[in-house]
Amino acid sequence: MPQNRQFLLDSRPQGEARADNFKLVTGDTPALKEGEVLVRHHYLSLDPYMRGRMDDAKSYAAPQPLGQVMQGGTVGEVVESRSPRFQAGDKVVGMGGWQEYAVVSAEQGGLRKVDTTHVPLSHYLGAVGMPGVTAWYGLTQIIQPKAGQTVVVSAASGAVGSAVGVLAKQRGCRAVGIAGGPDKCRYVEQELGFDACVDYRQYADAPSLARALKEACPGGIDGLFENVGGMVLDAVMLRMNDFGRIAVCGMIAGYEGKPIPLAYPQVILRSRLLVQGFIVSEHMELWPQGLQELGQLVGSGKFRPRESVAQGLESAPDAFLGMLKGRNFGKQVVKLV
């Protein structure tokens, strides 16, 4: 069995996460038992939710245990199998974590075969994986947009936000993104096909950002897919139409543990807004429906998601910390093979 390099969570962050919260170790891969498979990871996923799990605090998921492999999504290839369900050479997606190899139970390990004929393997961690289904669920089940309505998404160039806009356009909506920097806004408009994108970095406060949104959303805003919070959420709320729907997916502005005040809560009452948080892993029964639509969009070329690819396992901590500061462009993955 091969030697395996792994990143463990070595300490909990005090405020901002740091590279020394992680520890790189090398060890032996255990021999396979009956019903297990050995997977060589080709890519591992880096996602904002991992930051919250590094803290030992109440959340929607249990904290990441100290001294154990950092948990997260992976795609790779079965190199050895002692299960009739998988054969060597099968491409699979799972939750193998920040390591080069994983020994996984074929029955209970959550492994799923994937077809790479039309969809590149890494996209099963992004547009045709958990981020894509997150976008699909929040849009279709909470925002429930009708043709002609306006949907706004924050962090629009990211793995989740980009899928929200593409899915909204498929439903005949006006899709407006909010992103940081002219390059990201250009990508959102020209490559993803959003109707407009607002660069929040050009505005000092929520009222000035809201004025920019008024231009981008002349008919007001019917649905918001929220990934950021803070000033961005405040600005969008000022432009929401009556009976608007807000799907709360993430709060990037609060990942370092600081409070995120809400400046205009009275708008929720005045405009009779629905504000609903959700965790996509609680709705697994709908994943096949979402994955089917996303797979068709990517496979047909109607959705061309962008990736930021870090090279080698040792790059994972810095790539993760950079992602939390918005340095990635699209889905952040680490290439291991």
Rank of each mutant, 00 (worst) to 15 (best):
Q71A: 15
M130G: 10
V188C: 09
R85V: 03
D195W: 07
V78E: 00
Q99E: 09
A179N: 08
A88R: 13
A196R: 15
A168P: 05
A102P: 02
Y187Q: 13
V153Q: 13
Q190I: 01
S81W: 11
Q144D: 15
S105N: 13
A204H: 08
Q170M: 04
G180Q: 03
D90G: 05
V164E: 05
H118M: 10
A175I: 08
Q202E: 14
G89I: 01
K184I: 00
G181V: 05
A127F: 07
F194N: 10
Y200G: 10
V176M: 08
Q108Y: 13
W136F: 11
C185E: 04
G172L: 09
E191Q: 11
G161A: 04
Q190H: 11
Q71E: 15
S83N: 08
M95H: 11
G177L: 04
G76K: 08
I143H: 05
I178Y: 14
C185A: 08
M70H: 13
G129S: 04
V114N: 07
Y200A: 05
G172T: 03
L111R: 08
A156N: 03
G67R: 00
E191N: 14
G138V: 13
K113S: 02
H123W: 07
R201M: 11
A159D: 05
L139S: 12
G109D: 00
S105I: 01
G97Y: 12
G67F: 05
V151I: 14
P131C: 07
G76E: 13
A147Y: 04
E80V: 01
Y203C: 06
E189V: 13
V198L: 09
T117G: 12
Q202K: 15
R82C: 04
T150M: 01
A135P: 07
E189L: 03
Y124A: 10
G158S: 06
Q108C: 01
G193S: 11
T117A: 14
S162T: 02
G161Y: 03
S157T: 10
V69C: 12
Y200V: 00
V128Y: 00
Q149E: 15
V188I: 07
G193A: 09
L125H: 12
G193N: 11
S154L: 09
R201N: 05
P131E: 04
D183Q: 14
Q99M: 13
V128N: 03
V160N: 06
V119D: 07
L192P: 06
F194S: 06
Y101T: 00
D205G: 02
P131Q: 10
T117S: 15
G129V: 00
H118E: 10
A156E: 01
A127R: 00
G94Q: 10
I143Q: 10
V160S: 04
Y137V: 14
T74Q: 06
G109A: 10
K184N: 02
W136E: 08
A163M: 12
A204I: 08
T117I: 01
V198M: 07
K184S: 02
A196D: 15
V153A: 13
A147P: 13
